[in-house]
Design a binder for these strands. Structure first.
Lengths: 206, 206
DNA sequence: CGAAGTATAGAACATTCGGAGAACTTTGCC
DNA sequence: GGCAAAGTTCTCCGAATGTTCTATACTTCG
């Protein structure tokens, strides 16, 4: 279900609100917002805001002063009945959770598990010997523990996200690339945080 | 179901839209599209788009600005509600058509094409260097022609079905395995019948 | 060559979008 | 209650954009 898509201006205004609503000590009045957005007519702004309210992105402000408020993101109806969130590239350099409004992508049931899953697009050749190529989509079951031998999404030092085969030993964690030209990497357990386990993979050729 | 016989130009434009619609921050205006496509008349483009709308491939944009949108592939009428036929193992030794009542398997729209497709389960390591492993599912678009470089399902001598990279030369057909330990195979053109082209691939790890 | 179908340009027309501004209503405060 | 501030509704306008139509050129096929 996609709410009537926003016009360009509506999108701009919504983006602005998402960015700057916290900058105001109190939610701004329409006049203040006009000022910030470079409009000169309160009525015009109001019309745009109405559209956002109908799209379900802004709380209705029935005659309330300074009543403008965004709808909590969790409450926004996400169209993901069939799809999983696509969080973007792995090895992108930041924690998965940081990403806000992911696209979604259809995943057949046999490629996922009943537990929460998400999808990443693979960058690089580090798993090439496992048949996972640059550009592939991988389906990841979201969990924080994994067993040795499983291929995991690992967040290293809170910065880098990579897809590697896991080996946990006493006092260290080894991440094995599946590429004969690359070496396994050794870390202290506290450096590595597991963000999910590989459960499926897809590739398109067209 | 409509036979969506597109003209060449319509196909070009549709392909372009499928490729590049996401490149725009908002759906483009007709003028912007004209620019991107090298046309100079809005009206001309509009006429082509109308044809695509009638073919059911593009959402009607009734006077909406920036209203151009592709029909969700899920909604495109193809006999696929329940999934694609799973014809079994490739290299199973007989023509695909011979199989009567296949199972079906769910395939996400981005892994297939709008044309008829089916699924095979891969046996063997002959495409391992392409990242296609034993046990993978491959999505095949059902057609009888292919271009050099495409990976095809080839029926050899009416008996053996294999997945190989195709090279057609004058007077001979060469099927290239993607495995450095295997040699390309040479055939007369009449020995080789193409049964489809690889368009997608899936694997499960659980 | 001619016919039929297709593609393009360009002009003319219709609608939407975004904004301005006035007038009205409601709220908050004294 | 009265007043000012703020939200709401309304009409109007201009530019951007979608739609329609006509004329012309190009392709393909016999």
């Amino acid at each position: 279900m996609v709410p009537p898509s926003l016009t360009r201006r509506q999108q701009e205004i919504f983006d602005y609100l998402r960015e700057h609503l916290d900058d105001f000590p109190h939610p701004p009045t329409l006049d203040e917002l006009c000022d910030a957005l470079g409009l000169s007519s309160r009525g015009s702004l109001h019309k745009q805001i109405q559209a956002l309210i109908e799209a379900g992105l802004v709380e209705p402000m029935n005659n309330l002063r300074r009543g403008i408020r965004l709808v909590e993101e969790d409450d926004i109806t996400v169209a993901e009945d069939e799809g999983l969130p696509l969080y973007g590239y792995i090895a992108a350099g930041r924690p998965i959770e940081a990403i806000r409004n992911p696209e979604t992508i259809a995943v057949p049931p046999q490629l996922r598990t009943p537990n929460p899953c998400y999808v990443l697009e693979v960058r690089g050749d580090s798993m090439i010997d496992e048949g996972i190529l640059d550009g592939d989509w991988v389906v990841i079951e979201h969990r924080a523990q994994a067993r040795n031998g499983e291929i995991v999404v690992a967040l290293v030092d809170g910065e880098e996200v990579t897809l590697k085969r896991l080996e946990q030993r006493a006092g260290e964690v080894i991440l094995h690339p599946a590429n004969e030209r690359l070496q396994p990497m050794h870390f202290r357990p506290d450096q590595v945080q597991i963000q999910g386990v590989l459960v499926g993979q897809m590739r398109r050729y067209h």
